[in-house]
Amino acid sequence: MENSTIIQVNQLHKDFHVGEVTVRALRGIDMEIHKGEFVAIMGASGSGKSTMLNILGCLEKPSSGDYQLDGINMGDLNRNELAGLRNKKLGFVFQAYNLLPRTSALENVELPLYYNSKVSSKERKERAKEALNAVGLSDRMHHMPNQLSGGQQQRVAIARSLVNDPVVILADEATGNLDTRTSYEIMALFQDLNDKGKTIVFVTHEPDIARFTTRNIVFRDGLIKGEHPVTDRLSAQEMLDNLPPDEDVDVSL
């Protein structure tokens, strides 16, 4: 594994003000993520892991502390520069897929490239097709989201996160809406992408999903409670092959 740092976080705090009450969601986080890692951020709900991911995704600014993404200090950037950073350096995969309805898979994948004026429309199409190819959906390019199963929709979302060739993919409970089998399929896809060198940060509260990653960081009450490399890493593809065939029905539509 290469040792170049993609994400560097120092003493990160995030407070939310809800009326009179101040909720301290993050209370001093130090974290480093290197190129090629597949990190699971774990923790119960309210532990601050989603807030952490939002800050890593440049969707929210920390109250204090430093965050460097690929050598860029996000504290120095304004709203528009953050949007540009998201467009060029980050890929998001959401629990609810967040695909545009009544829009073909291909167009959904193309979307981030529309906001990059350097990409021509020809290149945009090609890269979107490539990304769909990479997630195994080249035969579903012109399907609308409502014609796709949950797993397929999530693959489209993953293709969308890949299309701008980001330095890191951020996934928020990406298997949360899927059944076991489809979850394994998605995790197999993530593992495959990771094997090809993609850096992935994956938020989950399911310990067995976290075992597909390379390193686990556990959050509790806004602090990192523990951190350990995954020694007994599972292969999602093998798990998939071992599933009994009678569970082979995709009901997530």
Binding site: N80, A83, N87, K88, F92, L100, L111, P112, Y115
Partner: peptide, 16 residues
Amino acid sequence: TREIGLRMSIGGRGID
């Protein structure tokens, strides 16, 4: 609004 949120998260600026 959700569509707007998505567009922002993939790099749409406010002005866009």
